[in-house]
């Protein structure tokens, strides 16, 4: 009996979803126990990974899925951060209501930036967004805004403690606070890319003319995509400012924008979960490079960024589709192996 045609695709696929579930469960458990395994600065860093991951998801929706490059998402991170800080420091709002507001502010800002950006393709769009990243720190420093932004001195915020008398430290609470937002926003992004709009986003990236012929209103989807993507960056920025407890124009330099781009490529373009890896990379790898070079003695001390660079290049060679791509490939191989043993 010939079983070839049916035996091919089906079991592998259903099994693969199985491994996806296992992976997700592991991530969830890991994320929940992490704050009880570490503390202080490390825990702060993990929370920051989550905030970066949120921003990376936003940038990936724009660049990975929709094909619009942005070298300036640090600017939206900054707008979100400042919006949150101003609302808390100048308007006395509780910190936990600010991320949605910051997100909305950035949604509008991103949409408005996205409209003229519709006329720009590829490298030209990269330059326009680059200009945004370059200009942002100085705009935030502009002296007529001093009353709101605190000028070059920035704004200082009190570090919030755990509410409702929860028996956890402030660091643990802030970690969970960020985790909650991250979980919601990851879920929303996953829903988005799996539906009609997500398909339209990718279709625009691959074949804009055909997409439009199928009824996709390209301009609207692209501008909206810019808005949503800025919203994510803005929420990430707002959360980040809360856990850092301080904001100044220098907090959001050009390097942050470039790091975001590094993060989505390292994590995996068109992967949502991959953004956790990407965020981990941009938060920790510079540190590791620093530690590595200082452990090599005085002569290597000046080289952490060289190490970072080499690591980055190596990674692109070993994992051309980012960490998420490598993990998926590994899971697929594992699945084929388990299928083979099951059949045997």
């Amino acid at each position: 009996m010939s079983t070839l045609p049916t035996a091919k695709a089906e079991p592998e696929r259903s099994g693969f979803i199985g491994w996806g579930r296992v992976g997700l469960a592991c991530v969830v458990v890991f994320a929940l126990v992490l704050p009880f395994m570490s503390s202080g600065y490390h825990l702060f860093q993990y929370a920051q990974v989550l905030n970066y991951a949120i921003a990376l998801v936003g940038l990936n929706l724009l660049t990975g899925y929709n094909g619009q490059i942005s070298l300036g998402h640090g600017a939206f991170f900054a707008i979100g951060g400042y919006a949150s800080a101003i609302l808390v420091a100048k308007f006395g709002m509780p910190y936990w209501v600010t991320p949605p507001i910051a997100g909305m502010v950035c949604l509008v800002a991103g949409f408005l930036f996205g409209l003229p950006a519709l006329r720009l393709e590829g490298l030209y769009l990269a330059l326009a967004t680059f200009a945004l990243a370059v200009a942002m720190p100085q705009l935030l420093n502009y002296k007529h805004f001093d009353a709101l932004t605190g000028g070059s001195g920035g704004l200082q915020l009190a570090k919030p403690g755990a509410p409702f008398g929860l028996p956890i430290t402030s660091d643990q609470w802030l970690y969970f606070y960020c985790l909650g937002f991250a979980a919601l926003l990851f879920l929303a992004a996953r829903n988005l890319v799996r539906g009609r709009i997500g398909r339209a986003m990718v279709a625009i990236r691959d074949q804009p003319v055909a997409a439009e012929t199928m009824g996709v209103p390209i301009s609207y989807v692209k501008a909206m995509c810019f808005g949503i993507s800025a919203l994510y960056a803005g929420v990430g920025g707002a959360l980040s400012v809360t856990i850092v407890g301080y904001v100044s124009p220098d907090s959001f330099g050009l390097f942050l924008s470039l790091s975001f781009l590094v993060g989505i490529v390292v994590g995996g373009l068109t992967s949502i979960p991959g953004m956790l890896f990407g965020a981990w990379f941009i938060e920790f790898v510079p540190n590791y490079a620093d530690q590595l070079t200082s452990s090599l003695g005085e002569n290597a001390k000046a080289l952490p960024w060289a190490v970072y660079g080499v690591l980055l290049i190596a990674l692109m060679f070993v994992m051309p589709r980012g960490i998420a791509g490598a993990v998926t490939a590994m899971a697929a191989r594992l699945q084929r192996f388990t299928n083979a043993t099951k059949r045997a």
Partner: peptide, 14 residues
């Protein structure tokens, strides 16, 4: 003019 990176099913869905 297919959406090259998308699956056949997703192409039809678009």
């Amino acid at each position: 003019a297919l959406f090259g990176a998308m699956s056949v099913l997703d192409n039809v869905l678009v």
